[in-house]
């Protein structure tokens, strides 16, 4: 196994660890920091894949990841929670140890799902596909078990990170045009979510998603 491969594996493991750390995190500020770290790990692994396969467009996507996911989006989120004044501890639907156990189950499921696929693939990063899938599923779980809107959006962004990593590990990344489009979509999405937050709070005096269910009863 080459050194580049080992480092990519290590970064993949780090990505998985950060996904679990986000799942178990109670504070929004730390959650945003973890999101930035996840972006950093993603960018580093993309850059290493770019270096070892000699595909220049992956350098662009690594740079894009650093600029957007380490710099801009965490900054926007920081601004948002400052403006919304939501530094409270996050409420979860299920207690955290139980969430973690469900997470382990998801990881096993993802690994079982990815093993036959990665055996067919010929790229050298194929073994990290399972981890990418697992972090997508874990971000899904995070969106499901969180009650407030901001952590759900962070879960959504983390899911995008996982998908990006899956693309890099399965096919050495998507074409540059697609990547640019996705990056822009995520950025625009973040801004739109920001506007949504203000609307939700204006309407319900809270960012708790449960209040939105009451509309059906009225």
């Amino acid at each position: 196994m080459s050194l580049a491969n080992q480092i990519v594996n290590l970064l993949a493991a780090l990505l998985l660890l950060i996904a679990f750390a986000m799942l178990s995190q109670r504070r929004i500020l730390t959650l945003i920091k973890l999101l930035a770290w996840q972006g950093g790990a993603l960018a580093a692994s993309t850059a290493i894949v770019a270096y070892s396969t000699g595909q220049p467009h992956l350098y662009f996507s690594a740079g894009l990841t650093v600029a957007l996911k380490v710099g801009l989006i965490p900054w926007v989120l920081h601004r948002l929670i400052d403006r919304l004044n939501v530094r409270w501890d996050i409420e979860t639907l299920i207690n955290i140890p139980a969430t973690m156990l469900i997470g382990i189950g998801l990881v096993i499921f993802a690994f079982a799902l990815a093993t036959p696929i990665s055996q067919m693939a010929s790229v050298f990063t194929r073994s990290t596909l399972g981890i990418a899938l697992a972090s997508v599923l874990l971000s899904f779980l995070m969106m499901i078990v969180r009650r407030k809107a901001v952590p759900q959006v962070i879960g959504f962004l983390a899911m995008e990170n996982g998908l990006f990593f899956a693309a890099t590990s399965a096919t050495y990344g998507m074409p540059l045009v697609v990547e640019l489009g996705v990056a822009l979509d995520v950025l625009v999405g973040t801004f739109i979510f920001g506007i949504f937050f203000f609307h939700i709070r204006e309407q319900f005096d809270s960012l708790d998603i449960r209040h939105m269910e009451k509309l059906k009863q009225d």
Partner: peptide, 15 residues
């Protein structure tokens, strides 16, 4: 959780 993740990672990436 960390210990289980370690074991799963071993199976997946063989490292």
């Amino acid at each position: 959780l960390l210990a289980v993740l370690g074991m799963l990672t071993h199976f997946l990436v063989q490292a």
